[in-house]
Simulated scan of single mutants.
Amino acid sequence: MELNVINRELHVENIEIIGIASSSLFIIGDAESIQQASTFDTPAESLIIGPFVPFVPRG
């Protein structure tokens, strides 16, 4: 995948994050490159695969 971005003026006044995922990335500003890496150090037999916890936004 190739993503070309033309940077213009940016002004961020307020950010509110109410939830994240296990593979989230949040950047404000410039990044020359972004690399993804993943490790799994828990033994496979301890992994429990089940329904996700429902995300309920705060209101």
Rank of each mutant, 00 (worst) to 15 (best):
M1F: 08
E2I: 00
L3M: 08
N4Y: 12
V5Q: 06
I6Q: 15
I6F: 06
I6E: 15
N7S: 15
N7Y: 14
R8L: 12
V12C: 02
V12S: 02
N14H: 15
E16F: 05
E16Q: 13
I17S: 13
I18N: 13
G19F: 00
I20H: 14
S23K: 04
S23H: 06
S23V: 02
L25I: 15
L25E: 04
I27F: 09
G29R: 08
D30E: 13
D30W: 05
A31T: 11
A31M: 09
E32P: 00
E32F: 10
E32M: 07
S33Q: 14
A37L: 05
A37V: 03
S38L: 12
T39C: 03
D41L: 06
T42Y: 02
P43I: 04
P43R: 05
P43G: 02
A44K: 07
E45W: 02
E45T: 03
L47I: 14
L47C: 07
I48N: 11
I48W: 08
I49H: 02
I49Q: 06
I49V: 12
P54R: 04
P54N: 02
P54E: 03
F55D: 07
V56C: 02
P57A: 03
R58K: 14
R58G: 13
G59I: 09
G59K: 14
